[in-house]
Amino acid sequence: MFLSFFDTRFDPRTLIFLTLSFSVVVISVSSFQLSLGLFIFALGLAVLFRAPLVSTFKKIMLLDGFMILALLSLPFTFASGPSLLIWGVSVYLDGFWLAVSIALKANSIFLCFTALMGRMGVAEFAHALAHLKVPTQFVQILLLMVRYIDVLRLELERMRTAMKCRGFQYSTSWHCWKSIGHLIGMLFVRSIERGEQILTAMKCRGFQGTFPLLHHFHYGRRDSLLILSFFSGLLLFLIFSSSLNLASLMELPSHG
């Protein structure tokens, strides 16, 4: 009964609002134990909403490679505070804990996002934005992009196949680079022309500059209940984790 509450469909606007609020809380928190508390809270959300944890963590690993590298380098480059000598390399504790706290924050937000919004379709998301008073022009751009990204991707794939058939191979040469440039250029030309065709087709069907929206959402009691329990839970976690005294355990610097 309790768990099935989280399986019901909420108003997408509620979910977007909660995700955003949680993200704001996460980044405005500066102590380590609060970040840890929020991370555990997000983990709990993911369990309650039955987010696919394994594939979520795989996705997290795919996060921008450069940023992961940057995080990994922090303990070695941020020369401040006490340091340990491990295999002849000094590892700075301040840097280490900073990196850990950033990783916690990024992952909390991502977990919360997957838990709350993971099951929302892109089109639903876009419509929810429109109902949140995001300009319809922007929403329309978003919707058209969603619709045509795959079409363009297949077009690019076909052109690449055709290049392969004519013996094209990737290499570091001007010929190769120029060909890739032309390929991208061609993709743009086709996308522009397709955009023109879409406009013509829309006009033929009576388009006069406004986009009607089909989906309508219903904000209900369950949404209020979710918002209420979400924020009370969040508050409890914050109070509980700030009463913990982790800092003395690991000589924590508070950053921020």
Binding site: Q137, Q140, I141, L142, L143, L144, M145, Y148, I149, L152, L187, F188, R190, S191, I192, R194, G195, E196, I198, L199, M202
Partner: peptide, 11 residues
Amino acid sequence: DIPKIALLAAA
């Protein structure tokens, strides 16, 4: 212009 902009962004 919206279709054109959207399609370019998609490209």
